[in-house]
Amino acid sequence: MPALLIFGMFFYLPFLQSIYYSFTEWNALKPPRFIGFDNYVNLLKDQRMKDGFFNTMKMVAFGVIVQNTLALFLAVMLNKPFRTKAFLRTSLYLPIVISLVVTSIIWGQLLNYEGLFNGILIRLGLESIIQDWLGTVQTSFPTIILLTQWQGIGYCAIIYLAGLQSIPNDIYEAAEIEGAKGFTLFRTITLPMLMTTVSVVLFLIVVGGLRLFELPYILTNGGPGTSSYTLFLAVYNAAFQNTQYGYATAASIVLAFFIIIVAIVQLRITSKREVEL
């Protein structure tokens, strides 16, 4: 009972309060003022929210297509017997161990106009393409997307690797006796048997993409202009930069339901293809 009370007080009560605040104009100093659905209507007119939404969708799409495919490919490769397998597995997992804040600062230095990355391009004779990668509208968000892949691919690959290792060898042996090999083995045995893992990885990629915050916050704070805004960053800045807590709460509620709906749809799609072992 006490545990339930504490849980209710720190989870359900703030949640219910959030719903109320989402219908108010509130700057944390004055008492909230009820304004009906204005906050929800205004979400549709907010440039930061709009750009945040489209960038977040780009992030999710890129993650699902590129990150997922590359992670699976890497996992299949790492599942084969070769000498430096353990080293490569560790190397792949390493980026996830380092704090995002630390990696963001390091990447920020590397990608600066006078940073190492441009230095390498100059040495390669590619001086014409050097630029401030995080300081132009065209490159800031694509750069952030690529940085998320650097950290995310290894993590997903390790999960896929665990999934691959749980597939019994005798199924492959039986299929090989039947004459299956190479990509046919992958398509008919590996992929169907891996669908539960695919569901988990896609879930992590989709939800992780929808919640992208730290990298744009530290590297660009959404700029230049609103070019690298994400939904989470737009919500954060609405609250902590514009001091519009009621509005930010409305945005966070919409975002939360959006994440849930997208995740449910994704789970439905992938779970239909799962094979029970």
Partner: peptide, 25 residues
């Protein structure tokens, strides 16, 4: 599925908790 359900709840909580402080720009 249970694990994913738990993840959903956690995500929901995380999103909402984004409005728990204040800042002056």
């Amino acid at each position: 599925k249970a694990w994913m359900g738990l993840m959903l709840i956690l995500c929901f909580g995380l999103v909402l908790s984004a409005c728990g402080g204040n800042k002056n720009n």
